[in-house]
C-alpha cells in the first residue's frame, strides 16, 4: 500500500562513535540513499565530517530533524542514545541506533515504547548479522546441517578505543558494555532462544583503570543451550588488526567455526615498523546500512530491531551484576522478561 521512498533522505546525529564515518561512507555509496546533513554537539567534529562527506552541517539536532529527511543514524556516546532517539522519534524519523542500544534496561524500554507509539522503525546497529559468512552459518544451522545446537563459544576483542569509551559517565561501562551485545545478538539469532541467565568474571587487568577491559561471560539460553562470550579490549596497540569476532557452534551432528574477519592478507611494509593484516572481505557496515535504507524505502520491519538491542543489552546488565555478586543472574530478575 505504501509507496517506495526514493531516495531515502538520511541525517546523521553525532560522530562521537567512530562507526559513524563508516555508516556515512556507506550512505554515499548506496544509490537509493542521500546523506542530507550532519548534526553534532561537537561542532568542530560535525563541520569536519560534513566537509569530508560533502554534506551540510546543522548547528543543532533540532535543526537537522526539521529538515525533509526520512531517517537518522544515531552515533553519539552510549549515554546520549536515549535522548537522541526520543528526539528523532518525536520528529517522525526512522532510526538506526549504534549499539549498545542504551546503557540500562529502563532507557532501552522507554526508547522502544516511544518509537512504537510514534510508528517509528528502530534498528539496532548489529552489523555482524550481515556478514556473508555469518549468514551462511545461520542458514547451515537452520537447515539442520549440524543437528541440534548444544553450545556456542563466542568472542569479540579489540584494542582499547580510549576517548569517551573509557569514561564510564558517557559509556555506561567498559569492554563488556562495548563488545558483548554484538555477540549476544548473534547467539540469540542463531539459537532462536532467549537469554535465561548470565554468569560473568570481569576485570580491569589490561589497563588497570576504573573501567572493565577483560571478561568472560557464560550465558544459559531458555532452550538449555549454553554459550560463552569474551568481550575484551585485550588486543595490544601493536596487534596487526583492530581485533576479531569468532564463533564456534557445536551441534549434535557437527560443528561450525566462524572467524568473521578472516578475509585478510598480511602486509609487511618498510613504511611501517610492524606488519599488519589488511581486510578484503565484504563491508558489513555497508550491508547493514543498506538493509536499513531498504526497510525505510519499502516500509518493511527493521532487523535487528530495538527489541533485539534490548535483549542483547540485558546480557551486559546481568553480567555486571553477576560479577558484583559472584552468582549467575536470571534476566527476569533484572526487569527483562525474555518472552516479551
Amino acid at each position: 500500500m505504501s509507496q517506495e521512498i526514493k531516495p531515502v533522505r538520511i541525517g546523521m546525529m553525532s560522530f562521537a562513535h567512530m562507526h559513524a564515518t563508516s555508516y556515512a561512507a556507506s550512505l554515499t555509496r548506496i544509490p537509493d540513499a542521500e546523506l542530507v546533513g550532519i548534526a553534532d554537539d561537537n561542532p568542530e567534529r560535525g563541520k569536519d565530517m560534513a566537509k569530508r562527506f560533502k554534506t551540510q552541517f546543522f548547528g543543532s539536532y533540532e535543526e537537522l530533524l526539521q529538515q525533509d529527511i526520512h531517517a537518522v543514524i544515531v552515533c553519539s556516546e552510549n549515554i546520549k542514545h536515549k535522548d537522541l532517539v526520543i528526539k528523532a522519534a518525536d520528529a517522525g524519523k526512522h532510526i538506526l541506533c549504534e549499539k549498545p542500544l542504551a546503557t540500562n534496561i529502563e532507557d532501552g524500554k522507554e526508547m522502544i515504547n516511544h518509537c512504537k507509539k510514534h510508528g517509528i522503525r528502530l534498528q539496532t546497529a548489529f552489523p555482524f548479522r550481515f556478514s556473508p559468512a555469518m549468514i551462511q552459518a545461520h542458514q547451515a544451522v537452520m537447515s539442520g546441517q549440524i543437528g541440534k545446537i548444544l553450545a556456542i563459544k563466542g568472542a569479540n576483542r579489540s584494542k582499547c578505543p580510549g576517548g569517551w569509551f573509557t569514561d564510564l559517565e558517557q559509556s555506561g561501562g567498559g569492554a563488556v558494555m562495548d563488545l558483548t551485545v554484538n555477540v549476544a545478538d548473534l547467539i540469540r539469532w542463531i539459537t532462536g532462544a532467549e537469554i535465561d541467565s548470565v554468569y560473568a568474571e570481569i576485570s580491569n587487568r589490561i589497563n588497570h583503570k576504573d573501567f572493565d577491559d577483560a571478561a568472560t561471560l557464560t550465558l544459559t539460553m531458555n532452550n538449555g543451550v549454553f554459550a560463552t562470550i569474551d568481550p575484551g579490549w585485550s588486543k595490544p596497540e601493536s596487534y596487526p588488526f583492530w581485533g576479531d569476532v569468532t564463533l564456534t557452534i557445536v551441534g549434535t551432528d557437527g560443528a561450525i567455526w566462524v572467524d568473521l574477519f578472516k578475509q585478510k592478507m598480511n602486509l609487511y611494509s618498510d613504511q611501517s615498523s610492524s606488519g599488519s593484516w589488511e581486510y578484503w572481505g565484504d563491508d558489513i557496515d555497508m550491508l547493514m546500512v543498506k538493509a536499513f535504507v531498504n526497510s525505510v524505502a519499502f516500509g518493511l520491519p527493521v532487523e535487528p530491531s530495538g527489541e533485539d538491542g534490548l535483549a542483547a543489552l540485558t546480557t551486559v546488565v546481568a553480567a555486571y551484576e553477576s560479577a558484583n555478586r559472584r552468582i549467575p543472574i536470571k534476566t527476569v530478575d533484572i526487569g527483562c522478561n525474555p518472552a516479551v
Binding site: L150, A151, K153, Y199, E201, S203, R205, A214, A215, T216, T218, F226, A227, T228, D230, T248, V250, T252, G254, A255
Partner: peptide
Amino acid sequence: KDYALITIRFRSGVIAHVEATFATPG
C-alpha cells in the same frame, strides 16, 4: 559427545576460559 566451557578466576585476578571438546569434527 562431551563439550564444556569453563571459566576460572585465579587468585592473582587472571581470568581463564577453557574449551574442552569431545564433540567436534575435523
